[in-house]
């Protein structure tokens, strides 16, 4: 067990580092990458609710990113809505979409769930691609100007970074609270023992659906920030590759942990931006790194490194390891 003071200290250091980042990296290029990491982290955090805490592997999470981005750009840049109204409608409508998609996908579980989320995501991609009069088709949809909330100039990279970081902080806080709440704990119960949960009086379907909608909501918040950041969205945003990339962030960082998806998001976004400048086949490198992580830390970077640090620390007292009681074989489920 780690001492709580250590935990608090590491949190304070992390927060200080995140706040000081624009001064630390100085160049706008890196500040922008940090903004992208923060946005991707919100998306990965929300997907991890399904994968890590719910045991529901979705390959369609780009839907919420893309739909919220399309809607906010369309509404504000092409339909004459104000920024706030556009943002609220985009998030609201995308959350309603998550209600519908959750309803459809949760008719199945396991592989069936994965296939339905994948199919629904690809339908959206097809719609964005084909419905050119509304979405600009292959050319995508642009023309959005970043808003000026409270007189902040979001065109300034550092200010935009703080803006996105604020949303990230709120998302992390809400998701952390959710995970420790009765509902969040129930979700983890349905992941481990759905049958037992039903027998204990839990409506497993409802718990999964509510969590699905919650995840979709945070996905749409990421989508709104994505739209503000890029001021542009194309069918690529809705494509399976975006969903798969997000899944990769979650798995590489560590499912079922809060920080894993954040670390995974940083890894993927940094590789994508920085490494791709030097190596054209950056995807291959990403693939290699992913395989290495899966081979050596199958539970992901964050739990893997935690385990590794602990074993390093306890090595001098190796004799202590033997004092755990003999662990009975976990009986058949």
């Amino acid at each position: 067990m780690r001492a709580p003071s250590f935990n608090l200290l590491s949190w304070l250091i992390a927060i200080a580092a995140l706040l000081a980042l624009p001064w630390l990296v100085t160049s706008d290029y890196y500040v922008n990458i940090a903004s992208q990491v923060v946005i991707a982290a919100i998306l990965a955090l929300s997907l991890n609710l399904l994968i890590g805490f719910g045991g529901m592997i979705s390959l369609g999470h780009a839907a919420y990113l893309g739909v919220a981005a399309y809607l906010s750009i369309y509404l504000t840049a092409h339909a004459g809505f104000g920024h706030l109204a556009g943002a609220l409608i985009a998030i609201g409508a995308t959350t309603v979409l998550a209600m519908l998609f959750g309803y459809l996908a949760l008719r199945a579980s396991g592989l069936g769930f994965l296939m339905i989320t994948l199919a629904l995501g690809q339908i959206l991609w097809g719609v964005a691609y084909r419905w050119a009069s509304l979405t600009g088709g292959d050319n995508g949809l642009g023309g959005l100007k970043r808003p000026h909330p409270f007189g902040l100039n979001l065109m300034d990279p550092a200010i935009f970074y703080y803006f996105a970081l604020a949303f990230f902080g709120i998302a992390l806080w809400c998701i952390a609270r959710f995970v420790q709440s009765a509902l969040g704990q129930s979700l983890q119960g349905t992941r481990d023992q759905p049958r037992r949960m039903r027998a204990l009086g839990y409506n497993v379907w409802l718990i999964q659906w509510l969590s699905f909608v919650f995840a979709g909501f945070w996905g749409s918040v990421a989508g709104l920030l994505y739209a503000y950041y890029h001021q542009f969205v194309s069918p690529q945003t809705l494509h399976l590759t975006t969903s798969a990339e997000t899944l990769l962030m979650v798995i590489a960082g560590g499912t079922g942990t809060l920080l894993g998806p954040v670390v995974g998001a940083a890894l993927v976004v940094i590789l994508k931006n920085v490494v791709s400048a030097y190596i054209t086949r950056w995807l291959i490198l990403l693939g290699v790194i992913f395989v290495v992580i899966v081979l050596f830390m199958p539970e992901g970077l964050v739990p893997g490194i935690t385990r590794w640090v602990r074993s390093l620390r306890s090595r001098p007292r190796a004799d202590k390891a033997a004092d755990t009681p003999s662990i009975a074989k976990d009986s058949a489920r």
């Binding site: 609270r177 959710f178 420790q180 709440s181 009765a182 509902l183 969040g184 704990q185 129930s186 949960m197 204990l200 009086g201 839990y202 509510l210 919650f214």
Partner: peptide
């Protein structure tokens, strides 16, 4: 928790 209303609470720390 299975029999209590709190099971739908998404906010309070269990």
């Amino acid at each position: 928790v299975g029999l209590r209303e709190i099971r739908f609470n998404p906010w309070s720390d269990l």
